[in-house]
């Protein structure tokens, strides 16, 4: 089977993000896509990141690998990965972390394959760029042959016929391409995989199957997984912990069962209420009123206040305090479960 991720002396959490702030410069002004996000992710853990479209969750994911468009700017914050802060690193230094330590499964992952090269070739290319991780040293041709075997093994792991590695992307179905992209993300034996809406473009049945497989692979390899999605149901299925993002900020973080059964932030509650539950009780769906705010000029105080049923004067004026402790908290003036003012 595949080897376990390489171990290093550092024993803290694999990933610690502190006060991460990313802005995009646009003609309308700075878009504060990610604003003061802090969380940590332990080894072998799955953190789900949920939020509406445009809440900055994709920017956050790309920001961790520092793969942002040229108008983006890392304003402040730390990305401590395995004891090393990635924030000040330049592109050449980042390259050593990309894919080798932190891999990614993209949003619309089906387009993540270059149409003019064979699928297997694109996986081998990543392995070659990182000096063939997990392949015994030897002549170039021999390493390549071994790497091909490794890719075949990965294809079997994600439920693909190994013969498909010599096909072009357009010869594969959407689900197959998705699996190939998952196989690609595992090729360099990363410690952390960032999955950004990896199943959104697929039909529900394929989505469900791939999700289960991803979860079992994650457990089997002991990977850490940052799962970014707008789909609350998916997070409930895969994540150990859930972070809820709103308007560029993390508003609630906690263990999955706790967040789902006793949400503290009114936004989390609203998000949960707007999704149908198959097994739970029958209830009318409650869409959140209003629109997500502009990230150029976000609302003052608590950014959720214009849409919040519990909003008061202090919500409009003052930044909300963090209630709760450690890895279970919410940033809210009037958290649920506390007395209504």
């Amino acid at each position: 089977m595949l080897d376990q991720p390489s171990h290093t002396p550092f024993t803290g959490p694999l990933l610690q993000v502190r006060d991460l702030t990313l802005h995009y410069r646009t003609r309308q002004g700075d878009v504060r896509a990610v604003d003061g996000v802090t969380f940590s992710l332990g080894r072998g853990q799955v953190l789900g990141l949920v939020g509406e479209s445009g809440c900055g969750k994709t920017s956050l994911g790309m920001g961790l690998l520092k793969l942002l468009p040229s108008n983006a700017r890392l304003v402040r914050g730390e990305i401590i990965f395995d004891g090393q802060d990635l924030a000040p690193l330049n592109d050449a230094q980042m390259r050593r972390y990309r894919w080798r330590r932190i891999a990614m499964i993209f949003q619309a992952a089906m387009n993540a394959l270059d149409p003019v090269y064979r699928v297997g070739e694109q996986i081998l290319e990543a392995m070659e760029a990182h000096a063939w991780p997990g392949i015994e040293d030897g002549p170039a041709g021999q390493k390549r042959r071994q790497a091909r075997e490794k890719v075949k093994e990965l294809f079997r792991l994600v439920g693909l016929d190994p013969e498909l590695m010599d096909r072009y992307p357009h010869e594969l179905s959407g689900g197959m391409r998705q699996r190939a992209v998952i196989a690609m993300s595992l090729a360099c034996r990363p410690d952390l995989v960032i999955a950004d809406e990896p199943t959104t473009a697929l039909d529900v049945i394929v989505q469900e199957r791939i999700l289960r497989e991803l979860k079992s692979i994650q457990k089997e390899l002991g990977l850490s997984l940052l799962y970014i999605t707008h789909d609350v149901a998916v997070v409930a299925e895969v994540a150990d912990q859930v972070g809820v993002m709103y308007a560029g900020q993390l508003v609630e973080l906690g263990d999955t069962p706790q967040v789902f059964h006793q949400p503290m932030h009114p936004y989390t509650a609203g998000l949960l209420a707007s999704f149908p539950s198959i097994r739970g009780e029958k209830r009318p769906l409650a869409a959140l009123p209003g629109e997500p705010p502009s990230l150029v000029a976000p609302p003052s105080g608590c950014r959720f206040h214009p849409r919040c049923p519990r909003a008061t004067k202090e919500c409009r004026q003052e930044v909300p305090p963090v209630v709760g402790q450690g890895n279970a908290w919410a940033a809210c003036w009037h958290p649920l479960g506390a007395a209504q003012p």
Partner: peptide, 17 residues
């Protein structure tokens, strides 16, 4: 602007590649 270019960068390939 294609996704596979971002993917190529994410794979840690050198800029020239």
């Amino acid at each position: 602007r294609e996704d596979y270019i971002t993917a190529a960068r994410a794979k840690g390939l050198p800029e020239k590649v």
